[in-house]
């Protein structure tokens, strides 16, 4: 059966409009000058057009980040929608960059754009991947660290979506604790 032209051209709309950011570490410039908005998208098809066009995270240089945030939220603690929030953090061993990193990051993106946390998806602000020589990190950021029910639900679903085993635990850190930490250890607020 032939579809009308208008229907063929219709794309699948996402619940939210998302913005992809890229950070490249240049010590000669201010932190914020190194952070660039790449593009925004709001349909399934446009997400893939972007994703298939950019370098996989595992091929980025050390010190670079990708961030995917809801449009209107900047990928930094200081944003009003982030500052009371925190992040579920996945840290990867060096050797996992080639085996797991791109899969985990893609599954993270699909969780966000597909609104896979149900009603709690409204708590999501975005996700960040940090490529670092000491070990890569992936995190999903939520807007309110005190909202324990939502945060732990998101953590449990996220862990399941990544296919992490029961023995592995992931921790949630409040941005306020990360920002004020005096050493490399940030307090973990929740664990799943």
């Amino acid at each position: 059966q032939e579809l009308p032209l208008g229907e063929i051209l219709d794309k699948y709309p996402l619940q939210n409009r998302w913005a992809l950011w890229f950070f490249k570490n240049d010590k000669n410039r201010m932190w914020q000058a190194n952070l660039r908005l790449v593009t925004r998208f709001s349909t399934v098809e446009d997400f893939w057009a972007l994703y298939d066009h950019i370098k996989p995270a595992s091929k980025l240089s050390c010190g670079c980040d990708y961030s995917l945030f809801k449009d209107g939220i900047e990928p930094m603690w200081e944003d009003t929608q982030n500052k009371r929030g925190g992040r579920w953090l996945i840290t990867l061993a060096k050797q996992q960059r080639h085996s797991k990193l791109d899969c985990f990051w893609l599954d993270t993106l699909l969780c966000l754009i597909g609104e896979m946390f149900g009603d709690y998806s409204d708590e999501l602000c975005g996700a960040v991947i940090n490529i670092r020589s000491k070990g890569d990190k992936i995190a999903i950021w939520t807007r309110e660290a005190e909202n324990q029910e939502a945060v732990t639900h998101i953590g449990r679903v996220y862990k399941e979506r990544l296919g992490l085993s029961q023995e592995v635990t992931i921790g949630y850190q409040a941005h306020a604790d990360t920002a004020t930490k005096s050493n490399s250890l940030t307090k973990t607020k929740f664990v799943v």
Partner: peptide
Amino acid sequence: GKKQYDREFLLDFQFMPACI
């Protein structure tokens, strides 16, 4: 309702040629 898509649905669109 909320526009929710599961992983398999979203993955079906990867590498799909863009429509013009």
